[in-house]
């Protein structure tokens, strides 16, 4: 096989999310972040989160991605093997670029969140002509 095989990665639990009142667990979703001239794109793996369970917030320069997962299913079943745990997702970033908040687009397909953060167009340099008297 010439192509790369995917490796199992253990889910990392969020360390500092404040003390939860319910016994819920939050995991850190793995992300890809890339930048073009026009925008910054964030991809986040959040399997099990429906479109309605995603919450994206941008306050000042802090981007918060939160994914709330529905029920696991599997109540009343006897567990034979358990290799992964499931829970909600939470991650925060500090964004250095100036983002046009009104034009942020978010899509959720097959458990992957795609977030497009358009940059604000930089002010064009303007030459001021000094008028002679």
């Amino acid at each position: 096989m010439t192509e790369k095989e995917i490796q199992v990665r253990e889910k990392q639990e969020v360390q500092q999310a404040g003390e939860p009142t319910k016994p819920e667990r939050y995991f850190v979703p793995p992300v890809d972040i890339y930048e073009t001239d026009e925008d910054v794109t964030v991809l986040a793996d959040m399997p099990g989160v429906a479109k309605d369970g995603v919450e994206v917030r941008l306050e000042d320069d802090t981007l918060t991605i939160k994914g709330t997962k529905g029920g696991n299913g599997g109540e009343g079943e006897r567990v034979l093997l358990r290799e992964f745990e499931s829970g909600h997702y939470l991650r925060r970033f500090t964004i250095a670029e100036i983002i046009d908040q009104a034009k942020i687009e978010a899509t959720m397909v097959d458990g992957v969140l795609t977030l497009k953060l358009p940059k604000v167009e930089p002010a064009k340099p303007r030459k001021i002509v000094v008028q002679g008297g």
Binding site: V8, P47, G73, G74, V79, L80, E83, F84, D110, V112
Partner: peptide, 19 residues
């Protein structure tokens, strides 16, 4: 990674495969 469970009549295999 898989989670496997069973009840009287069925086996259930679950996996998180995003993307």
């Amino acid at each position: 990674a898989l989670n496997i469970s069973e009840d009287a009549d069925h086996l259930y295999v679950r996996a998180e495969i995003p993307g």
